[in-house]
Amino acid sequence: MQLGSIFRKTRMLSGLSQEALAEQLYMPRSTISKVENNKMELKISDAIRWFQVTQAPEALAALLCGVDITTVVHTLSKLIGGFISYVA
């Protein structure tokens, strides 16, 4: 999976348009598009802000640790689902 698709997925899951995210990150919308299409890379500080704004800390942690993000999200979902079943 390429990084651009990860950035796009986190933006879309947060319900933000490219324009809305660009405003919150103080970037042009064209930069958001370039990042999502793997035509530009972000500085780590900008990537961190992206994941903060899109409320996707698990994606940031997975990237920094070199772990597949899909695996992390799937594992967290199972863990949380199991915890909810245990509490109920």
Rank of each mutant, 00 (worst) to 15 (best):
M12Y: 08
M12S: 08
L13Y: 07
G15W: 12
L16T: 02
S17D: 10
Q18H: 02
E19S: 13
E19T: 13
E19L: 10
L21D: 08
A22N: 05
A22C: 02
A22R: 09
Q24I: 05
Q24T: 13
L25R: 00
L25I: 09
M27Y: 07
P28M: 11
P28F: 08
P28T: 05
R29P: 08
R29A: 14
S30C: 00
S30V: 08
T31I: 10
T31Q: 14
I32T: 00
I32R: 09
S33M: 07
K34V: 07
K34P: 04
E36I: 02
N37R: 10
N37I: 00
N38V: 01
N38W: 02
M40A: 12
E41Q: 12
L42H: 03
K43H: 08
I44T: 12
I44F: 12
I44P: 06
S45K: 11
D46T: 15
A47W: 05
I48E: 14
F51E: 04
F51V: 07
F51P: 03
Q52L: 10
Q52K: 13
V53D: 06
V53N: 09
V53H: 06
V53K: 03
T54K: 08
Q55K: 14
A56T: 00
P57T: 03
E58D: 15
E58M: 10
E58V: 01
A59P: 05
A62M: 09
L63Q: 06
L63C: 07
L63A: 01
L64D: 09
L64H: 10
L64G: 10
C65Y: 10
C65S: 15
V67L: 13
D68N: 15
D68L: 04
I69P: 04
I69L: 13
T71Q: 00
T71S: 13
V72D: 05
V72H: 02
V73A: 10
V73D: 07
H74V: 09
H74L: 12
H74A: 14
H74Q: 14
L76T: 00
S77L: 11
K78R: 15
K78T: 12
I80Y: 07
I80W: 00
G81Y: 03
G81C: 10
G82N: 01
